[in-house]
Design a protein around this nucleic acid. Sequence first.
DNA 1: CTGTATCCTGTAAGATACTG
DNA 2: CAGTATCTTACAGGATACAG
Lengths: 127, 127
Amino acid sequence: MPDPNLYDPDCPTRLVLDRIGDRWTVLVVLLLSQKSPMRFTELRRHVGGIAPKVLTQTLRALERDGLLRRTVYAEVPPRVEYELTELGRSLRAPITAIGRWAERHVGEVLDARASYDDDQRADQVDA
Amino acid sequence: MPDPNLYDPDCPTRLVLDRIGDRWTVLVVLLLSQKSPMRFTELRRHVGGIAPKVLTQTLRALERDGLLRRTVYAEVPPRVEYELTELGRSLRAPITAIGRWAERHVGEVLDARASYDDDQRADQVDA
DNA sequence: CTGTATCCTGTAAGATACTG
DNA sequence: CAGTATCTTACAGGATACAG
């Protein structure tokens, strides 16, 4: 394999970033790295406001990428459990780091936004 | 401020995740944490395949969130430099961690995808 | 050089109803 | 319970031309 180069649009590392870049993947991985295994409805309840179709898509994509293991128990009613694989758990550290950054710095970001938007409004008036 | 809760759709931390979640932000932050300041065209050249409009959007969003400082020099031809702020640099560690994870584990992910897709095909034939 | 201004399109995501 | 099946829509993102 050639040197991975995130900045090359054709480099597969980009596929990884694109995956992480969807709205739900990070949240699901965070959840499963805190509690595992979890069931479909359980995940759905914890991840606020996700449609079942979308949750399925997210889980399937994670499974396809080898980050997640899906286990179906032949019972009635059906029971399906999701848990991170070894590979998925290796994502835990970097992703929780992002999560913690978000929690610690939301305030600053919101302040920055507010003052940026204020300046914008001021410029509008000037012009 | 109430406890930040990433899983609450209305929690502002989600705004942060959404920002990180676009296609280019992570790449731009990575670039600027390696070399700074950088100019518009320079960024454009390094980030493979980004349209100028989109690069502008990305940079503006980062600026609005206080992660990026944009400096315009009154010269002809115009020169504009971009660099991370303190806040932006604090994102460096978590984001480079993601980048490194991608580089280190692309192989495994691609393998997982291939075998998953193979199984899918096999199931198709079975049915 | 550093961007706007337009126009256009694909697709992620949402809502909802339904099934084994 | 754990999902599919459908339908719909917004909007991020792309291509291209042009402007100060």
